[in-house]
Protein backbone atom coordinates (compact mmCIF):
# COMPACT_ATOMS: atom_id res chain seq x y z
CA UNK A 1 0.00 0.00 0.00
CA UNK A 2 2.65 2.38 1.11
CA UNK A 3 4.98 1.45 -1.71
CA UNK A 4 2.20 1.88 -4.21
CA UNK A 5 1.65 5.37 -2.95
CA UNK A 6 5.29 6.28 -3.33
CA UNK A 7 5.32 4.74 -6.75
CA UNK A 8 2.41 6.82 -7.86
CA UNK A 9 3.98 9.91 -6.45
CA UNK A 10 7.21 9.20 -8.22
CA UNK A 11 5.58 8.72 -11.58
CA UNK A 12 3.49 11.84 -11.27
CA UNK A 13 6.04 14.05 -9.67
CA UNK A 14 5.17 16.93 -11.95
CA UNK A 15 1.45 16.56 -11.58
CA UNK A 16 0.60 17.89 -8.15
CA UNK A 17 -2.55 19.52 -6.88
CA UNK A 18 -0.85 22.88 -7.21
CA UNK A 19 -0.03 22.74 -10.89
CA UNK A 20 -2.76 20.57 -12.23
CA UNK A 21 -2.46 22.18 -15.65
CA UNK A 22 -0.51 19.11 -16.64
CA UNK A 23 -2.38 16.45 -18.51
CA UNK A 24 -1.47 13.48 -20.60
CA UNK A 25 -1.57 14.02 -24.31
CA UNK A 26 -4.09 11.72 -25.90
CA UNK A 27 -2.21 9.55 -28.36
CA UNK A 28 -4.37 7.27 -30.41
CA UNK A 29 -3.25 3.80 -31.33
CA UNK A 30 -1.93 3.40 -34.83
CA UNK A 31 -4.51 1.91 -37.20
CA UNK A 32 -3.78 -1.64 -38.24
CA UNK A 33 -6.17 -2.21 -41.11
CA UNK A 34 -6.50 -0.29 -44.35
CA UNK A 35 -9.86 1.22 -43.51
CA UNK A 36 -8.37 2.66 -40.34
CA UNK A 37 -5.43 4.07 -42.27
CA UNK A 38 -7.76 5.62 -44.79
CA UNK A 39 -9.79 7.22 -42.02
CA UNK A 40 -6.58 8.58 -40.53
CA UNK A 41 -5.60 10.16 -43.84
CA UNK A 42 -9.00 11.81 -44.18
CA UNK A 43 -8.90 13.04 -40.61
CA UNK A 44 -5.42 14.44 -40.91
CA UNK A 45 -6.19 16.08 -44.22
CA UNK A 46 -9.29 17.88 -43.10
CA UNK A 47 -8.56 18.71 -39.50
CA UNK A 48 -7.11 22.04 -40.52
CA UNK A 49 -4.05 21.90 -38.32
CA UNK A 50 -2.04 23.56 -41.04
CA UNK A 51 -4.29 26.57 -40.84
CA UNK A 52 -3.86 26.76 -37.08
CA UNK A 53 -0.13 27.04 -37.73
CA UNK A 54 -0.69 29.74 -40.30
CA UNK A 55 -2.91 31.66 -37.92
CA UNK A 56 -0.42 31.47 -35.07
CA UNK A 57 2.45 33.00 -37.02
CA UNK A 58 0.15 35.60 -38.56
CA UNK A 59 -1.10 36.56 -35.11
CA UNK A 60 2.46 37.07 -33.91
CA UNK A 61 3.22 39.21 -36.95
CA UNK A 62 0.17 41.42 -36.38
CA UNK A 63 0.85 41.71 -32.69
CA UNK A 64 4.39 42.84 -33.51
CA UNK A 65 5.68 41.97 -30.07
CA UNK A 66 9.35 41.99 -31.01
CA UNK A 67 11.77 40.46 -28.56
CA UNK A 68 15.00 41.43 -30.24
CA UNK A 69 17.66 43.13 -28.15
CA UNK A 70 19.54 45.44 -30.53
CA UNK A 71 22.77 44.30 -29.06
CA UNK A 72 25.46 46.92 -29.52
CA UNK A 73 23.03 49.70 -28.58
CA UNK A 74 20.99 47.78 -26.05
CA UNK A 75 22.40 45.34 -23.57
CA UNK A 76 20.77 42.83 -21.34
CA UNK A 77 21.43 43.37 -17.63
CA UNK A 78 23.75 40.70 -16.32
CA UNK A 79 23.80 39.16 -12.88
CA UNK A 80 26.00 40.73 -10.19
CA UNK A 81 27.92 37.47 -9.84
CA UNK A 82 28.41 37.01 -13.57
CA UNK A 83 31.85 35.56 -14.27
CA UNK A 84 33.40 37.66 -16.99
CA UNK A 85 36.81 39.36 -17.21
CA UNK A 86 38.68 39.41 -13.94
CA UNK A 87 39.21 42.51 -11.86
CA UNK A 88 42.19 43.08 -9.62
CA UNK A 89 41.21 45.03 -6.52
CA UNK A 90 43.02 47.65 -4.54
CA UNK A 91 43.11 48.19 -0.81
CA UNK A 92 40.58 50.78 0.26
CA UNK A 93 42.78 53.01 2.31
CA UNK A 94 46.22 52.88 0.82
CA UNK A 95 45.37 52.35 -2.84
CA UNK A 96 47.94 49.61 -2.82
CA UNK A 97 47.26 46.51 -4.86
CA UNK A 98 45.55 43.95 -2.76
CA UNK A 99 47.23 40.90 -4.23
CA UNK A 100 49.86 39.51 -1.88
CA UNK A 101 51.46 37.29 -4.44
CA UNK A 102 50.59 34.06 -2.67
CA UNK A 103 50.27 32.26 -5.97
CA UNK A 104 47.18 30.26 -5.05
CA UNK A 105 45.29 31.40 -8.09
CA UNK A 106 48.14 30.39 -10.35
CA UNK A 107 48.18 27.00 -8.71
CA UNK A 108 44.47 26.31 -8.89
CA UNK A 109 43.81 27.58 -12.36
CA UNK A 110 42.73 24.53 -14.30
CA UNK A 111 43.62 25.91 -17.68
CA UNK A 112 47.00 27.12 -16.53
CA UNK A 113 46.45 30.62 -17.75
CA UNK A 114 47.58 32.68 -14.76
CA UNK A 115 51.25 33.47 -14.49
CA UNK A 116 52.81 35.32 -11.55
CA UNK A 117 56.32 36.45 -10.86
CA UNK A 118 57.17 37.85 -7.45
CA UNK A 119 60.18 39.50 -5.98
CA UNK A 120 61.12 41.19 -2.76
CA UNK A 121 60.59 44.90 -2.77
CA UNK A 122 62.72 47.59 -1.13
CA UNK A 123 61.28 46.89 2.30
CA UNK A 124 61.82 43.17 1.86
CA UNK A 125 58.13 42.60 1.35
CA UNK A 126 56.90 40.23 -1.30
CA UNK A 127 55.78 42.15 -4.36
CA UNK A 128 54.07 41.01 -7.53
CA UNK A 129 56.25 42.03 -10.43
CA UNK A 130 54.41 40.23 -13.18
CA UNK A 131 50.81 39.10 -13.23
CA UNK A 132 49.06 37.99 -16.34
CA UNK A 133 45.93 36.04 -17.19
CA UNK A 134 45.73 34.61 -20.65
CA UNK A 135 42.06 35.26 -21.24
CA UNK A 136 42.27 33.39 -24.52
CA UNK A 137 42.62 30.21 -22.48
CA UNK A 138 40.60 31.12 -19.41
CA UNK A 139 37.37 29.17 -19.13
CA UNK A 140 35.94 31.58 -16.54
CA UNK A 141 35.43 28.85 -14.02
CA UNK A 142 35.89 31.22 -11.12
CA UNK A 143 38.31 29.04 -9.15
CA UNK A 144 40.90 31.80 -8.95
CA UNK A 145 38.42 34.20 -7.45
CA UNK A 146 37.22 31.56 -5.05
CA UNK A 147 40.63 30.57 -3.78
CA UNK A 148 42.09 34.05 -3.35
CA UNK A 149 42.57 34.65 0.39
CA UNK A 150 42.52 38.42 -0.01
CA UNK A 151 39.60 38.72 -2.42
CA UNK A 152 42.15 40.43 -4.62
CA UNK A 153 40.98 38.83 -7.81
CA UNK A 154 37.28 38.75 -8.63
CA UNK A 155 35.23 38.50 -11.73
CA UNK A 156 33.75 41.58 -13.31
CA UNK A 157 30.88 42.06 -15.72
CA UNK A 158 32.84 43.04 -18.80
CA UNK A 159 32.20 40.41 -21.43
CA UNK A 160 33.08 42.19 -24.66
CA UNK A 161 36.66 41.04 -24.88
CA UNK A 162 36.99 40.27 -28.55
CA UNK A 163 40.31 41.38 -29.94
CA UNK A 164 42.62 40.75 -32.85
CA UNK A 165 45.68 40.66 -30.62
CA UNK A 166 46.23 37.90 -28.13
CA UNK A 167 48.31 40.23 -26.02
CA UNK A 168 45.22 42.29 -25.31
CA UNK A 169 43.87 39.43 -23.30
CA UNK A 170 46.52 39.56 -20.63
CA UNK A 171 46.82 43.16 -19.50
CA UNK A 172 47.09 43.34 -15.76
CA UNK A 173 46.75 47.10 -15.85
CA UNK A 174 43.35 46.80 -17.54
CA UNK A 175 42.09 44.49 -14.86
CA UNK A 176 43.37 46.56 -11.97
CA UNK A 177 40.86 48.98 -10.50
CA UNK A 178 41.87 52.42 -11.79
CA UNK A 179 43.05 54.88 -9.19
CA UNK A 180 40.42 57.51 -9.89
CA UNK A 181 37.71 54.91 -9.51
CA UNK A 182 39.33 53.83 -6.27
CA UNK A 183 39.36 57.39 -4.99
CA UNK A 184 35.74 57.85 -5.96
CA UNK A 185 35.03 54.83 -3.80
CA UNK A 186 33.23 52.89 -6.49
CA UNK A 187 35.26 49.70 -6.38
CA UNK A 188 32.79 46.85 -6.33
CA UNK A 189 33.16 44.60 -3.32
CA UNK A 190 31.79 41.20 -2.63
CA UNK A 191 30.73 39.82 0.71
CA UNK A 192 31.81 36.57 2.17
CA UNK A 193 34.84 34.93 3.65
CA UNK A 194 37.86 37.18 3.47
CA UNK A 195 35.88 40.19 2.41
CA UNK A 196 37.07 43.66 3.10
CA UNK A 197 36.53 45.30 6.48
CA UNK A 198 37.24 48.88 7.43
CA UNK A 199 40.85 49.59 8.34
CA UNK A 200 41.90 46.47 6.53
CA UNK A 201 45.16 48.19 5.68
CA UNK A 202 46.38 48.19 9.24
CA UNK A 203 45.59 44.56 9.76
CA UNK A 204 47.27 43.17 6.68
CA UNK A 205 50.27 41.28 7.94
CA UNK A 206 53.53 41.35 6.17
CA UNK A 207 54.44 38.12 4.48
CA UNK A 208 57.12 36.51 6.63
CA UNK A 209 60.49 36.89 5.03
CA UNK A 210 61.78 33.51 6.02
CA UNK A 211 60.19 31.63 3.11
Amino acid sequence: MHIEHIDEHFNNRNVTEMNSDYYLVGIEDYPTDNWGRFKRVIKRSFRGELFVGLWVVMREMIRFDIHTVKYPEEKMPIGPRYRAIHQMKRLWESDAERCIGCGLCEKICISNCIRIETKLDASSRKEVSEYSINLGRCIFCGYCAEVCPELAITHGGEYENASDQREHFTMYQDMLTPLDMMRAGTQLEFEGFGSITPHEDERVKKTPLAY
Binding site: V57, M58, E60, M61, F64, D65, I66, H67, T68, K70
Partner: peptide, 12 residues
Protein backbone atom coordinates in the same frame (compact mmCIF):
# COMPACT_ATOMS: atom_id res chain seq x y z
CA UNK B 1 8.34 38.52 -42.86
CA UNK B 2 9.97 35.46 -41.33
CA UNK B 3 11.54 37.64 -38.68
CA UNK B 4 8.29 39.33 -37.74
CA UNK B 5 6.52 36.00 -37.55
CA UNK B 6 9.22 34.77 -35.22
CA UNK B 7 9.20 37.97 -33.14
CA UNK B 8 12.52 39.18 -34.49
CA UNK B 9 13.46 42.31 -36.37
CA UNK B 10 15.32 40.89 -39.33
CA UNK B 11 17.94 42.97 -41.14
CA UNK B 12 18.10 46.41 -39.51
Amino acid sequence: VLAFMQRRLGPM
